[in-house]
């Protein structure tokens, strides 16, 4: 049971990542390969605030979101001037740079050793110490993020994003400054990724830079491409599938390290097969 709860918590964390990444990739059509960077900044900001000052988890998470948003604003200001392949490549570059900083800014991040002893959240004297209560918290936050994403996509702002995705020049002709829209959605998406980062840090109670590599960004991209771009249900389905799969492989008798690589093989193969036979993913409305 404990094991199933563990899987469910991971699925909710990755669902939040999928939902937030979908705002940029699915709704606005920008192939961003830097989501793990914001996941990481959110995780580190929350973890440092918790361990250094011992403040409340929820306050730390909110401050972490603001910090992540501010950094995303700087990165997005550069990225929103690119499109197509260059967007993908430039964003990947920022992931590498952020990872290098997490790894090498020893005095702040403790480098490759990471940050141990991150406290579990508590609120009004109630501590989310047990995994069952932590799962409840994760699900509540997932529901909140889902709600925010739905609000964004149904608003007039979301419709402009769709227009950028379908034909950026056409919507520019109508007088919309598309770089502004691309920037805003990028920052919002990064702030929601920070929520996932905060949850991850306090759930595992330990973080190190290896959780926030380019490969992790590619994994998040696979989640939403598998589930289907611009589909909320797709993001959750993709996360559930790709998290449960390697666990199933472990039960099938593969050793743990091979199972981790088998996960890579499987989702790589899924990407190829999807591109060949179903480029819109399982539930998606938008084709790359």
């Amino acid at each position: 049971m404990e094991y199933l709860i563990h899987i469910a918590i991971l699925v909710s964390i990755y669902s939040i990542l999928g939902l937030s990444l979908n705002l940029v990739v699915g709704e606005a059509g920008l192939l961003s390969v830097t989501h793990a960077a914001f996941y990481g900044i959110g995780a580190y900001a929350t973890a440092l605030l918790l361990t250094e000052s011992g403040m409340n988890f929820f306050l730390a998470m909110l401050i972490g979101m603001v910090i992540t948003g501010a950094i995303a604003l700087l990165i997005g200001a550069v990225l929103s001037r690119f499109d197509g392949d260059f967007y993908a490549l430039g964003s990947l570059g920022f992931n590498v740079i952020v990872f290098s900083i997490l790894l090498n800014w020893q005095s702040l991040t403790n480098g490759p050793l990471g940050i141990p002893g991150i406290a579990r959240p508590s609120l009004f004297g109630f501590s989310f110490e047990s995994n069952t209560s932590f799962l409840t918290l994760s699900l509540v936050l997932l529901a909140l993020v889902w709600g925010i994403c739905t609000l964004i996509t149904r608003s007039s702002f979301g419709r402009v994003l769709h227009a950028i995705r379908e034909d950026e020049q056409a919507i520019q002709v109508f007088g919309y400054t598309t770089t502004y829209y691309k920037l805003v959605i990028f920052v919002l998406s990064a702030m929601l990724a920070a929520v996932a980062g905060a949850l991850f840090a306090s759930y595992i109670t330990f973080i190190d830079p290896s959780s926030f590599t380019v490969n992790e960004s590619i994994f998040m991209l696979s989640i939403i491409i598998l589930g289907g771009l611009a589909s909320h249900r797709g993001a959750v389905l993709g996360a559930a599938f790709l998290i449960i799969l390697p666990e199933a492989l472990r039960f099938a008798g593969f050793p743990t390290d091979v199972a981790a690589q088998m996960r890579q093989v499987t989702y790589g193969a899924i990407l190829i097969l999807l591109m060949l036979y179903r480029p819109q993913g399982l539930l998606g409305e938008y084709r790359l």
């Binding site: 192939l31 197509g84 392949d85 993908a88 490969n215 590619i218 991209l221 491409i225 091979v258 690589q261 088998m262 996960r263 890579q264 093989v265 989702y267 790589g268 193969a269 899924i270 990407l271 190829i272 591109m275 060949l276 480029p279 084709r287 790359l288």
Partner: peptide, 24 residues
């Protein structure tokens, strides 16, 4: 007539698979 992005994502899949097979 797949778009460049589709080919890019497919090649990302190729990279992931080969890298993991080598590691195995």
């Amino acid at each position: 007539k797949a778009s460049g992005t589709i080919l890019l994502v497919a090649s990302l899949g190729v990279l992931t698979v080969i890298q993991a097979v080598i590691a195995i």
